[in-house]
Design a protein around this nucleic acid. Structure first.
Length: 288
DNA sequence: CATATGTCCTGAGAGC
DNA sequence: TGCTCTCAGGACATAT
């Protein structure tokens, strides 16, 4: 499930191929699969975007952003199973959108190529947002600060303003943007904080640990190019598996001995309808 | 307002 | 073996 590290990997994977390229076509998947949420309609979107040049590929939280020279931008939300791929994807059944590009690539001659949005479950969305709406998305009113932009002060401020189990708070994209279910468990494990600890009772020291752990876990996961879980859905832009699943300490590791304290078995429980994993020895409820 | 729950979707895996 | 059922969790709509 693409969270910040997976989306960052997608953006890095397509950046070189899309930046500076001109958009010559946008096509919806020709197969009879259910159409993805596309805003505006394909016809309107083509009118606004064809002939434009992609000036930047960026990430905001868990979204991929392709900025056009008009100021508008494609905003792609992969949600559960969406992927950005280069070249010809292997499974045409779940292809949703194709961007056809032309332009110089890596100092070579002009070349036509495609970027694809592939999405098995079809929960993902593709939008073309005008500049003003993009500004709102990039700001922190609707989405909180990007998880990699957080500071201890910001954490203190934002966690202090809510009274919820800390794991649930980390998943709230208005509070901090980019963390999903997998990395929330990993971040709290590294922080040594129980997932049910209330945000309004966290100590200064605990918040500093969340600050450090967030950067550490997310940057490490980016280095590994994200996590490809058992269903094998997530892949990078070249359709290769990520590697971070092998470095998970608790996520999807129920009953395994905790690799940090090498003793207690990892526990799993359901919190706000999501699976939470933690080590009962490293993450005591009432703690240091 | 803050927080909680329901909803969408497909395919893997469990259990009978 | 082949069926049915549950579950996975992104973001947002609706409910409390």
């Amino acid at each position: 499930m693409p969270e910040l590290p997976e989306v960052e990997t997608m953006v890095r994977g397509i950046r070189e191929a899309v930046t500076g390229a001109r958009l010559v076509d946008v096509r919806a998947c020709p197969c009879p699969c259910r159409p993805i949420t596309l805003t505006p309609s394909l016809a309107v979107l083509r009118k606004q975007a064809l002939g434009r040049t992609i000036v930047a590929a960026r990430r905001r939280a868990k979204r991929v952003i392709l900025e056009l020279d008009s100021g508008a931008a494609f905003v792609i939300e992969p949600r559960m199973t969406g992927l950005m791929l280069l070249g010809d994807p292997p499974d045409p059944e779940h292809l949703r959108i194709e961007w056809r590009l032309v332009g110089p690539e890596a100092g070579q001659i002009e070349r036509e190529r495609s970027v694809w949005f592939w999405d098995r479950r079809g929960l993902g969305t593709v939008r073309l947002l005008p500049a003003e709406e993009l500004d709102v998305l990039m700001g922190t009113t609707r989405l909180g600060p990007d998880a990699l932009e957080m500071t201890a002060d910001l954490w203190r401020q934002r966690l202090g303003s809510v009274a919820r189990p800390v794991k649930v708070a980390l998943l709230d994209q208005r509070l901090v943007a980019g963390i999903g279910n997998l990395y929330a468990s990993e971040i709290l494990h590294r922080s040594g904080i129980h997932p049910e600890a209330r945000t309004d009772r966290l100590t200064r020291r605990q918040i500093e640990r969340i600050d450090e752990a967030t950067r550490f876990i997310l940057q490490e996961a980016i280095r590994y190019e994200g996590s490809t879980l058992g269903d094998g859905t997530y892949r990078n832009a070249l359709n290769k598996d990520g590697g971070y699943q092998n470095a998970h300490k608790v996520y999807d590791r129920e009953d395994d001995p905790c690799p940090t304290c090498d003793g207690a078995p990892v526990r799993r429980f359901v919190q706000a309808q999501r699976a939470t994993f933690f080590c009962p020895a490293c993450q005591k409820k009432r703690d240091q």
